Computed example of a mutant assay.
Amino acid sequence: MGEVMPFLMVVLIVLIVTIGRTIRAKHAREARLSDGASSEDTLRLRHEVTRLNERIQVLERLATDPRKRLSDEIDALGGPDR
């Protein structure tokens, strides 16, 4: 029994440290989630993503159109001053 005791103590220490780190990581993750974006921020970000997706669609359309049409669209983007 005297030979098993140091090994058992090491195993218990490792187990306690592992459980402690797991609990700490769980609390840290929960704190990050609770400090995360509010619903207002979420709506703002969704609106921004929608707007960026619309811009990407326009750029894709411009990139895949024939040269003449591309040139006309670019000129139209310049406004009436061009």
Rank of each mutant, 00 (worst) to 15 (best):
V10W: 05
R51Q: 10
Q57Y: 08
P66H: 05
T64S: 05
T50W: 06
P80E: 05
S38H: 03
M1W: 10
V11L: 10
L70H: 03
L59E: 03
A28C: 03
R61E: 13
A63N: 10
I23L: 14
P66G: 00
T50Q: 13
K26E: 14
I13M: 13
L8G: 07
L33R: 15
G36H: 02
G78N: 13
S38M: 00
L52S: 04
D41T: 03
A63D: 06
D72H: 03
R32V: 06
D75W: 11
L12R: 08
V10P: 00
S71R: 08
L33D: 08
I13V: 15
G36K: 03
H47D: 08
R67E: 07
D35F: 04
P80D: 07
P6A: 01
R24P: 00
V11W: 09
R61A: 13
D75Y: 14
D72Q: 11
H27F: 08
L70F: 08
R46V: 04
G79E: 02
A37P: 06
R29W: 12
A76Y: 06
V4F: 07
A28D: 14
T18I: 10
A37K: 15
K26N: 15
I74F: 07
V58M: 07
S34M: 12
I23Q: 12
P80L: 00
E30F: 12
R55C: 02
A37I: 10
V17G: 03
E54M: 04
D81P: 01
R46E: 08
R44S: 12
S38E: 03
G36T: 02
S38N: 10
E30D: 15
H27G: 00
E30M: 15
M5Q: 13
R61M: 08
S71P: 00
P66K: 02
T50M: 09
H27N: 14
R67P: 01
V58C: 03
R69F: 02
R32T: 03
V58P: 01
H27E: 10
R21W: 15
I19D: 05
M5T: 11
R61C: 02
R21L: 13
L43N: 09
L43V: 10
V10F: 08
R44C: 02
E60V: 03
S39Y: 12
R69Q: 11
R55V: 03
P66N: 01
P6F: 00
T18F: 10
E54R: 09
I19A: 11
T50E: 13
D65Y: 05
D35R: 13
K26L: 15
M9T: 12
V58S: 07
V10A: 09
T22N: 14
P80T: 05
D41W: 02
R24N: 12
G78W: 06
R51L: 07
E40K: 06
P6R: 01
S39G: 04
P6Q: 01
N53K: 15
K68S: 10
I23K: 15
A63V: 00
R67T: 05
R32G: 00
D65Q: 09
H27C: 09
E3C: 08
L62W: 05
H47T: 09
R44Y: 09
L43E: 12
L15D: 04
S71F: 06
R67G: 00
V49G: 02
R46C: 05
A28L: 13
R32Q: 07
I23Y: 12
V4S: 06
A28Q: 15
G36Y: 01
G36F: 01
L59Q: 04
Q57T: 10
R61H: 14
V10Q: 13
Q57W: 04
L33W: 09
V49Q: 12
